[in-house]
Design a protein around this nucleic acid. Sequence first.
DNA 1: CCTCCACAGGAAGCGCAGGAGT
DNA 2: ACTCCTGCGCTTCCTGTGGAGG
Length: 410
Amino acid sequence: MPSPSFSEILNRPTVFADKNVLSPHYVPDTLPFRDKEITKIMEGLSPALKNERPRNMFIYGKTGTGKTCSVKNVISKMGEHKSTAVSCYINCRMYNSRYRVIQKIDKELLPNLDSMGFGLAMLYEKMMTDIESGAKRLIVILDEVDMVKDLDDLLYTLTRANDELSKSSITIIGISNKVSFKDQLGQRSKSSLCENEMVFAPYTPPQMQKIIEQRAKIGFKPHVVDESAINLAAAITGSDVGDARYALKLLMKAGELADEQGSKKITDKEVESARKAVESDVAFEAISTLPDHQQLVLLAIANLVLDKGKNTRLTSGSPEEDDSFLVSGEVYEEYCKVSRHYRKPRRSARWYREYLNDLEMLGLITTVESGAGMRGRTRLIRIGYPASDVKKIIEKNFSIIESKDEEKHA
DNA sequence: CCTCCACAGGAAGCGCAGGAGT
DNA sequence: ACTCCTGCGCTTCCTGTGGAGG
């Protein structure tokens, strides 16, 4: 079969009208069911347009409840106004320390500055002089703010900076999806960050359904999506507590699947297989971007789970999947073996525990403190995704790495 | 009850990379 | 070219912690 021309590819039939609408980065002009919240954010930030310092703000709510979207929406509205307000959006998952956040602010403020490798004090000075000389009202948006390691230091630095500024100011908007997170904050930063706080409630199932309908209407060509498919998508998302982002992914994937199969309609079938695809996509993405040793730990866990599965089936024959709990110690031993196999120097047990915590944070494993029946205090580990899939993904990753190494050596 | 086991997780410190100042 | 800093990943050491076993 001859390869197709680009125009042939571009003219392939598709169910999408505007795929962008379904992207998680898309900021719609109007967010349904968030009018109250948006108004409140606008009121909160309005002083910046009158050349006054807006108060800090703290927003929290579960993932996919429109927090980031609402803030971005307000910021873009604010850009239409002429003012000295400047905003800087920072995702703290990537910029997860005081140093990196300030470095990022500098980069936004002074794009041609190559700020790599400066000391913290230097970066801070650069930021301050720029804000003050431009008499700017800086609004720093810290998304996923709970990811910052030295958050107390960061908040202290940024709030205290205002004491040194006269014509200008810094305002912080913190966004977090951990509701309990507020309690973990130091007293000082709590009172400064929570000058103005808001909660985004999860979308209710009927709201979810409206959102999906609305997006589907603009994202897809008319009459593509079955009504029952929308219901199903809403039901799947609803059971996983009102996460709109997940719903959009689901729609996107369902559309792609329909295109691939040359189907002109999106039905329950597409939505159902989209759900599976999205699930393994999420896992694959999370796993393959993991640092080497965390992958090795995960591989060790997967190995042991598979081994145990075989043994219980051979010996007892009882279908006790419940026994897939692993204890921390045996996992570490297996991890050492695996590391040797891939010729990676193994990390210490202390650091291995830190890896476990990271893996748990990502939802790839779950751990429980040992209770009665167990000797001593340890952690019981269970894998979050099917062990065989995890094993495949990681082994594939490492075989790629190995072959790259061989190329280098050759 | 005490001791020991099998860990958890904090604290300190080390070597390294890479930029600034000289 | 050199020394000084700073952040980062990591190791070493250490102090809990909670059930098992004597």
